[in-house]
Nucleic acid binder design. Structure first.
Lengths: 248, 248
DNA sequence: GGATGCCATCCATATACATGGACATCTAAC
DNA sequence: GTTAGATGTCCATGTATATGGATGGCATCC
C-alpha cells in the first residue's frame, strides 16, 4: 500500500461522508493522520481541485474533479447496457416497472428503472437504504450466512412502514424463505402500496447486481409467483450473458 | 505537491477520461509514470476499490468508491438549495423552463432543470458540451478576453445545427454583444426549435454558475428581452444571496 | 518451438515524503 | 490585554517510497 495514495482516498472518503465541510482539526480526528502530513496532502488536493477550500480555507469539502471522475464509473460499467436489454425484455413480458441495481458494501451504486417503453431513469446513486426493507437488500443478504447478516445489520432493524420487519431473528427467518424460494419478496416494507420481487445475480459478495420488479401490493399470490418466476428467468439469462462476455 | 497524491488523482482522471478500460502499459503512456511506480499505486487503489481490475487484472477501470465519493459533491454544494429557490421564483415569473448550471473548466458539473412546479431534475453531470453553441457557454466565455477565448476554443468551431457559429471572429463579435447587453442569447445554435437566454454569475474564472431560460425559438424580440431582463434580475439576486451567505 | 509483447512481481538504492515541533496569525472568550 | 484554540507555514531528519532493471508467467503470432 502506498501510504500517500491510501491517505488521499481516506481523506476524500472522510470529506464525502461528512454532511458538512470539515476543518483540518476535524479531519485529523477522523483520519488519525498527523497534522502536518494532512496539511501537505490537503494543499495538493486543493490545487488539483479534488478538494474545495472555503475562502479563507478553514473548511474543506469534496471538489468538482472528484465528481467528474467518479461519475465516469456509470459511463463505463459494461454490465449496464446488457442490463438495459434484460430490463426491457422483462418489462415487456410482465408489464410492471422493473429495476436493475448494483450494490456494493451496502451502497446502491445505481438504480436503473424502466417504467415503460419510453420512461427510464438512473437514480439514487450512492444512497444508503436500509437493506432489510428492500427486496433488493434481502436478495443480497440471502447470499450471506446468518452470522454475517447479524454482523452487518443493527438490532432492532429500522422501520420505514408498519410492515417493516424490526426483529433480527424474524428477518433471518425471512432470509431462509428467500433462499428456499429463490427470490426476495417485500410487501410494503419499504414503500406503502408497493410490493417488490428481487433476484440477485449470484456471484461474489459484497458487490452484486440484482434485477427486481415492483408492483401493486394487492396482487394475488399466483400472479406474484408468475412474476417472480419471470424475474428469476431473466436474471439467470442476464447472469449467463455476463459470464459469456467475461464481465464481473 | 505530494507526488503520490498527485499521481493518484492523475491515474483516476486518466481512467475516467478513457472510454475503455486501460492496461498498465496504456496508463503508462498516458500518465508518463514509471511502470513499477504505477503498479504499486494501482495495487493500492484496487485494494481500496477506487479502481476496478478485470478478472486476471490486465485492464483497469474507475471503481465504485470513486463514484460514491464523487457524487457527495452534489449533496454538499451550498449553492444548490439557494439556486433551487431562485429557479422557482424565476420560473413562476416567466413561465418557461429554467436551468441552473455550474461549469468548471469547460465541464458542466450539473444542470438543474425546472420545467414546472413538480417536474425538476439534475442531469448531464460532467458532460462536455461545445461551449460556443450554448447560451450558458457564451455567458461564461464573455467573462474572458478575446485572447483567452481564442486559446480555449478550436477554430473552426464545431457546428451542431445550421445556426451554429463556426467562425471564431464572428463568435468573438457575438461575445461582444453578450457583454454589451448583459446576457447571452442562443437561437437554435444548440437545439433546433429552442432559444436560450443565459446570465452567468460574475466571479472568478474558470468556475462559474449561471442561470438560464430556454424557450421556443420563435418568440418576438420584446418578449425575449423581457425574459432576459428577468433572468438578469434573478441572477443578480442569487449572486447577492451567495455573497451574503459567504458561498463561493 | 521460438520470438514477441504483454503482464505481475521482486529488489537495492537514491530520492522524496512524513513527521513533530516551532512560529506567526487569527479568532473567540474571558 | 490576555489566554486558549484554531489555522497555515516552515524545517530537519528518519523513514517510506520511487524507480530501473531483472525475473517468471502467459498469451499471441510466425
Amino acid at each position: 500500500m502506498v501510504k500517500s495514495a491510501e491517505r488521499t482516498v481516506r481523506i476524500l472518503e472522510a470529506l464525502a461522508a461528512s454532511p458538512e465541510r470539515l476543518t483540518l482539526s476535524e479531519l485529523q480526528k477522523r483520519t488519525g493522520f498527523p497534522r502536518s502530513s494532512l496539511h501537505a496532502l490537503m494543499r495538493t488536493l486543493v490545487e488539483l481541485k479534488w478538494i474545495e477550500a472555503d475562502t479563507g480555507s478553514s473548511a474543506y469539502g469534496i471538489g468538482p474533479h472528484a465528481l467528474l471522475t467518479g461519475t465516469a464509473y456509470l459511463d463505463k460499467d459494461p454490465a449496464l447496457p446488457l442490463a438495459h436489454d434484460a430490463l426491457e425484455d422483462l418489462r415487456e413480458e410482465i408489464g410492471h416497472t422493473v429495476h436493475f441495481a448494483r450494490r456494493d458494501d451496502g451502497h446502491v451504486l445505481y438504480l436503473a428503472t424502466r417504467e415503460s417503453r419510453d420512461r427510464h431513469a438512473i437514480s439514487r446513486v450512492g444512497r444508503r437504504l436500509p437493506a432489510s426493507v428492500t427486496a433488493l437488500g434481502q436478495a443480497l443478504l440471502a447470499q450471506l450466512t446468518d452470522d454475517e447478516v447479524a454482523a452487518l445489520l443493527p438490532d432492532p432493524l429500522p422501520a420505514l412502514t408498519e410492515q417493516s420487519i424490526t426483529d433480527l431473528t424474524k428477518f433471518t427467518d425471512e432470509l431462509d424463505q428467500v433462499r428456499a424460494r429463490g427470490y426476495a419478496l417485500e410487501r410494503e416494507q419499504g414503500t406503502p402500496g408497493v410490493a417488490c420481487v428481487a433476484v440477485a445475480v449470484d456471484y461474489r459478495i459484497p458487490a452484486t447486481d440484482a434485477i427486481s420488479c415492483s408492483m401493486p401490493a394487492g396482487l394475488p399470490q399466483e400472479e406474484i409467483e408468475r412474476i417472480a418466476e419471470a424475474v428469476i428467468r431473466h436474471t439467470r439469462k442476464f447472469a449467463a450473458t455476463l459470464r459469456r462476455e467475461g464481465i464481473r
